[in-house]
Simulated assay, not measured.
Amino acid sequence: MPTGVALRDVREQLFAAAERVLLRDGPYALTSRAVTTEAGVAKGVLHRYFTDFDAFLAELVLDRTAAIRLQEAALRETAGDGDIVDTLTRVLTDLFTSVAAAIVALVIARDELRARLRETTPVGVPMLIEATGMVAGYLAAEQDRGRIRVEADVNTLALTLIGSGHLISADRTGTRPGEAAVHKVVATVLAGVIRGR
């Protein structure tokens, strides 16, 4: 098997294991031993591919934030179709019930990880920054189509939506907000900026 394929498979196996531990047990339970045990590999396997555990975690975060950038293009393509509030409700519900919310908690919990991520994301929290960009891009596309008022500040609206979504979803041990709660937040934030509402 080509080396690149094997490396990618091992990395994905370790990343998937880390996500399972993170979702099940939270950021403080995420250790190299927990990841390798979950992945069913020897502890040395992680250190064969990554200089240390924080390097592994940084790569995990960067890999998962890249996925949000891919979603951004797909979301922009939907501009002009469907109800804006419904679309953003789905986006925020999916975002904050996925591993993304757990990764944000991980970044906040680990000082060394945040320091490493500052090399690529000098301000803000990775995942939240990319998610904000995704929502701002979608709102700008809707603005270009005349469905969002031209005077609306789409960057501030996106920050407000992502910040609000994170706040109501941040407690991993509590009950996640339902779609109705997210819909209410989106509708409130966008009140007065959607044409025809």
Rank of each mutant, 00 (worst) to 15 (best):
L106G: 10
T93A: 11
F53D: 00
T89W: 08
I148K: 00
L88P: 06
H47T: 04
E119I: 08
A152P: 06
L46N: 01
G133K: 02
A140N: 09
P126W: 01
G40A: 07
T97L: 14
G44V: 05
E59Q: 14
R114T: 07
R118K: 14
V154H: 10
A158V: 09
N155A: 14
E119Q: 12
R76K: 10
A152I: 05
L62Y: 02
R69D: 13
R147S: 08
A105H: 12
G44K: 06
D153A: 13
V45D: 01
T65R: 15
A100K: 05
L113I: 03
T132H: 02
T37L: 08
T37F: 03
G124S: 08
Y49G: 06
I103S: 03
F56E: 04
F53P: 01
E72V: 11
D86A: 13
E72Y: 03
V150C: 04
H47N: 04
P126I: 04
V85H: 08
A55K: 00
E112S: 12
A141W: 09
T132Q: 09
T93Q: 13
A141R: 08
V125I: 12
D54T: 10
R118A: 15
A102I: 01
A115E: 12
T51N: 00
A136T: 02
A152T: 08
F56Y: 10
A152Q: 12
